[in-house]
Design a protein around this nucleic acid. Sequence first.
DNA 1: TCCTAAGCGAGACGGTACGTCTTGTCTTCCA
DNA 2: TGGAAGACAAGACGTACCGTCTCGCTTAGGA
Lengths: 209, 209, 209, 209
Amino acid sequence: MKQQLEKQITDRRIQKTRQGLQDAMYALILEKGYEAITVQDVIDRANVGRSTFYAHFQDKEDLLLSGVEVLWKQLEEHLLVETVSEEDIWKVSQSMFQHAQSQRSMYKALAGKQGGNIALKLIERNLYQIVFRHLNDELSKRKSTFPSEILTRHMISSFISLLTWWLDSDAPYSAAQMNEFYQQLIGCAVESLLLSSPPVTNYRNDAGV
Amino acid sequence: MKQQLEKQITDRRIQKTRQGLQDAMYALILEKGYEAITVQDVIDRANVGRSTFYAHFQDKEDLLLSGVEVLWKQLEEHLLVETVSEEDIWKVSQSMFQHAQSQRSMYKALAGKQGGNIALKLIERNLYQIVFRHLNDELSKRKSTFPSEILTRHMISSFISLLTWWLDSDAPYSAAQMNEFYQQLIGCAVESLLLSSPPVTNYRNDAGV
Amino acid sequence: MKQQLEKQITDRRIQKTRQGLQDAMYALILEKGYEAITVQDVIDRANVGRSTFYAHFQDKEDLLLSGVEVLWKQLEEHLLVETVSEEDIWKVSQSMFQHAQSQRSMYKALAGKQGGNIALKLIERNLYQIVFRHLNDELSKRKSTFPSEILTRHMISSFISLLTWWLDSDAPYSAAQMNEFYQQLIGCAVESLLLSSPPVTNYRNDAGV
Amino acid sequence: MKQQLEKQITDRRIQKTRQGLQDAMYALILEKGYEAITVQDVIDRANVGRSTFYAHFQDKEDLLLSGVEVLWKQLEEHLLVETVSEEDIWKVSQSMFQHAQSQRSMYKALAGKQGGNIALKLIERNLYQIVFRHLNDELSKRKSTFPSEILTRHMISSFISLLTWWLDSDAPYSAAQMNEFYQQLIGCAVESLLLSSPPVTNYRNDAGV
DNA sequence: TCCTAAGCGAGACGGTACGTCTTGTCTTCCA
DNA sequence: TGGAAGACAAGACGTACCGTCTCGCTTAGGA
């Protein structure tokens, strides 16, 4: 008990330093792009010693990716609050668009074109895990021979492409509209591969906002 | 006339050096990945002096991208030979799959996951130019309000995603089969947005915000 | 009264910590040499917190030199017990050889080649004070023009050189023997400069410039 | 022949860089003392890149010691010119005093109290080699039981002590005078240990300047 | 056949960023 | 309240690449 308390308080100090470094990183990414950033830049911005940086993160990539974890945890909470199950693809995508809308600058830093592709690659991989499991089941249930990796990659890459365009172009579309676009682009293929018998409009009814 | 001849012969020597550097680059990419490569690695492999490298290319990125140009010229010739017009999207995509099949190792170096994303980004941009012009026309002809950038990016990102997966996974599909998959994933959306005449505004009703 | 008692007890505690740090230092010097030692090494060895170290000593040099003071006090007591006056140079030197013999490991740490030169420099300076005053008097009494700094430095450096060699080489000579050597090396010069009455100016004739 | 020429020219460039670094080092030693100097200080002063420094010297100690080599070579030449044999101790010492006089600032940097003890230790070791061999022979010829290490160390440490004092104190004595002092301090002991039978004044006759 | 200008290899160089290490200060808790 | 634990700012270290440069050699065309 005592040890835990002590640890927590120490953690608070540590957490503050980590947060400071992450914030400095986000700000710098939006200013000059991930690649151009130097460890020195980050620690100057965060008012932190060099060794402190390396006590917390292996290198600037590690710092960047630590941000993805934060974002990912927030997203999971978001999904929980909205009581979205992983099965319902359209709700998941909509939740991500919403989350991106509410955390715009963080998303821009991590997933925008300034953010380097490393963070994006991790997000892609995370999404892949979730979607692949689901699609693989569905396709095998229907004895489809269509390679599930391809379908998964298609859905993910299209989603990512849409998301990054939205973040970078400052296009005046709402999260809901973006999700609508996504459905229009993807839905038809998903239908034809997964939902041969049920009514075509099925997924559309769910997409009401 | 004389000057041109001299230039050509000199060019032959120069060309040999450039080629050597490009070849070294490809080999090294397949060995250890683009990011990990050092200028020193390249010039050691190509048996070339450091200054020679910088006489021909600005940096290793420049060398990499010079390869994309080569590839792109080959592709254009390929399209000419097959008498493919840019309008016919499916034939263009099929030609690219074919070309990738015939130049597999070069494609792997430039577009595979070892190749860094820089070359891929350039290919993407090139494709975007071609496809966007075409789609924008078609959509405006039909008075569709669907953003043509989004549709273009969707088509390109899906194609790239498919292509890189094919190159990296050594999946036993032919170029024709890959194009078949591509059509299955994309075709339906393209059709509904381009080929149907009336219901273009349909999605707007659902997307009320 | 209570306060005083309490103070004493506290002092005892403090003394213990200081002692622990000094002991750790000596041990480490003999193991790896003074230069290579880190403050971290010392506090790990002494089982002491970093801040504790800096509460007692300014830096590792301060800690080392604090040891010289201890050694110096012991030496003074030694001289008192043996009732040696500072005037009798040979007895002073013999006393130091004896003391070094009895406190061999401490001397090795402070004056040996492992101990860095800082401690040695301090010892040299201390000896210089004592010897210089004496020699300066004697030389001026005899109206000698021989620079007393030079003579002092000669005596000290020869003594130090002998002492450190003895400590480092584990040569099987007793303190008495070492002092005998010292007299043989130094005595003749001291005699000719101090004990002979007339021919002080003798060397000047040869030193024509 | 061609290869040698090429090498020489390259060497000239390299030599210039090395020289620049050494000069910067000497200047900085005289300004702030060896210990306080940073590699960065040196390369800033010498207008040299960091990697260049490390291409030539392992660390600042290596740079310092490389200076001793230079000094040593100069000294050897000096001895050659003056046709001094190693046997004649007094001439060797006089030559060193003379050399120090002519290269005062270099000696101050390397052997003065600003120079750290590293260079001095090396000089001491070099001298030790020369003197020890000679003295050891002489002592064993005479079947003396006096330890030759001790005598050697005595002579060297006294010489060094005299030299450094001279360099640091700016005392107004000439090289010849310094050597006279040295003889007065050392000569008597050397005599009594080496020259038992011959006339005592023997060495004095040789020391005429 | 010799000459000469360009391409070239070799690699020294100035510079920048890296990740590591040590120092001395500081804060927080415990006994 | 003093000491233990250890996070922290500061900054030097030695390494790794970069892109520029200087230097002779080779070499292939025009004299």
